[in-house]
Amino acid sequence: MATKEYAGKTVNVSEDGYFTDASQWSREVAADMAKEVNLELTETHYKVLEFIRDKYNTGGSLTIRSIGKSGIASIKEFYKLFPGAPLKKATLLAGIPKPASCI
């Protein structure tokens, strides 16, 4: 298993960079990771990341639709917050394994 260093902490990651242990995540770690994808995290970004982590920890299904209904950001805003492939990028920064979601 690969490891990476973010904000001075060593974390376990999968081949494509996703966390394999969600408990190794922190806001500082996320901020450091965000630099790799040229993002500067705002409070809204963190709210989305925490929503995603919460979904993951409670075993809920994570879809773009559920984020749109979270009240944090509309789907349009979500695409703007994490440009490109938003669900992939957001789950990467949220420190959870790669999402297995089709919607």
Binding site: S61, R65, G68, I75, Y79, I103
Partner: peptide
């Protein structure tokens, strides 16, 4: 139950993402 939206909402999701 699988969180698949109704057609109108699905179309909105597609355009919201560009």
């Amino acid at each position: 139950e699988l969180d698949m939206p109704p057609v109108d909402e699905f179309l909105e999701m597609i355009t919201a993402g560009g």
